[in-house]
Write a protein that binds this DNA or RNA. Structure first.
Lengths: 250, 250
DNA sequence: GCACGCCGTGCTAATTTATGGCACGACAAT
DNA sequence: ATTGTCGTGCCATAAATTAGCACGGCGTGC
């Protein structure tokens, strides 16, 4: 049960998204696949309406706008993005750091769905669609702290991958950390996933208390100041609450 | 050169997006395909990270957030969406009708990429990702009127499909209409695509004058008043110009 | 001006791959 | 207890994809 051609087509689609506008040759080098195979795949994706030829260089491929019809369930209908944008902008204006909105996906990872940039010359950078682990990030732990016990145990049961020397990989320590997150209303991550990247996050909740997303203040370690933590934590928690309220209000 | 399995997988993916969260059985009825085929496809899409099981009903499938990594070239990097949102909201507040932002795709169609709703009980509805033809819509003609001659001729060379009794299908008439659009700075569509739906649109231009997108005021025919046309046309054209300027400013 | 190399494209036989009918276990309603 | 429906897994057959090769166009450098 494999469907090799489908798997490969999706990989190629993702590669086009990353490198668009891209040529057949560049993709063959990227994957080490025969030219004909790559080209056949591109033509198929094109006929399905997912790819289009670049306007100026018709031998280069790019992603068509039709993919917008395929929207994640996490954003479906719900006005999560619309409700979050204004509060996120206000939060950015207060702290002048990059703000992310991330949603949980596949039970052990988070995906960035929106971003408001800080104006600092040195900033952290995560693109929309970027993936990060639940246990090693501030956003992920803000989600986990608000997740039902059974789902949480399921995540903690698996081996916790380490990404840096400070990553929490012991389930017991992680549980203690999650207790702290619950008590504070916000989660903190100092260099535990990407070295040099720190974050403070709080969860956006649905009406039933289940976590929908996390608002994240992300900054370089060079600007991370423990003394500001209570203030930043309060601000990010207030923003998350405001988004929860706005989403339910409309 | 067909890649049947890939084509079908993408169709199924799109169907999941439309009906999520959806079960295997519902999809088999939709496509009339054998159960095993559909399920194998779903599992493959899941393993590739594009699908995930619904949290509450694990036999239902939905789109994962990872698809956000695949973004259309038309929105890539460019802050088109960000630049457009505030002006669109202001336009909506002025006219209280639904505002769309659409981008051209595949040389003969438009795709809705953003939407700000009117507050009327009766409103027009086009979802993000919806597709419409270039020649029969206000947005499409706003784009065509700003397109280079060679590309425009290519579109006009094909047979122009008719969607209602008022659709312009004669290339000569369409050319005359496009001249009018150029002169006015906005395009108008009265029931030419979807019966009962009228629209007024203007193009957002890139620095080189090529059309990037169209801002569209969309309303039911019942509220369409020819006397307001000059005012609405002026407003939508101003909004489009403002978006063009904001996009280049940042 | 010529030859070379690179690129995108199309073809075809060989082989891998997907297909879909069928069966099983679980669950819900009758 | 029973019937219908659902999701899932298996396997021989049949059909699909594969990848090597060749062609034509294009730009470069000799």
């Amino acid at each position: 049960m494999e469907m090799k051609s489908v798997t490969r087509s999706l990989r190629i689609l993702e590669a086009v998204a990353q490198h668009q506008p891209v040529t057949v040759g560049e993709l063959t080098k990227l994957f080490g696949l025969p030219k004909s195979t790559v080209q056949r795949t591109l033509v198929t994706l094109h006929e399905a309406g997912w790819l289009r030829a670049n306007r100026k260089d018709t031998t280069r491929w790019e992603i068509g706008a039709r993919v917008l019809a395929v929207r994640p369930a996490a954003l479906q209908g719900s006005s999560l993005l619309a409700a979050a944008r204004d509060p996120m902008i206000r939060l950015r204006d207060k702290v002048n750091e990059t703000i992310h909105l991330s949603v949980p996906d596949a039970l052990d990872c988070m995906v960035v769905v929106d971003r408001i940039d800080s104006s600092h010359a040195v900033r952290t950078f995560h693109d929309i669609g970027d993936i990060s682990p639940l246990h090693a990030t501030a956003g992920g732990r803000a989600i986990l702290a608000n997740t039902g016990k059974s789902d949480r145990d399921e995540v903690l049961a698996r081996p916790l991958e380490s990404y840096s020397e400070t990553t929490l990989t012991d389930p017991q320590q992680l549980r203690a950390e999650l207790e702290l997150v619950s008590a504070n209303g916000y989660a903190v991550n100092r260099n535990q996933f990407r070295p040099g990247v720190c974050a403070i996050a709080s969860a956006v909740l649905d009406s039933d208390g289940s976590p929908l997303a996390a608002v994240v203040i992300s900054m370089p370690d060079s600007r991370y100041d423990p003394d500001r933590l209570p203030e930043l934590g309060r601000l990010v928690a207030e923003t998350a609450k405001e988004i929860s309220a706005r989403r339910l209000g409309s």
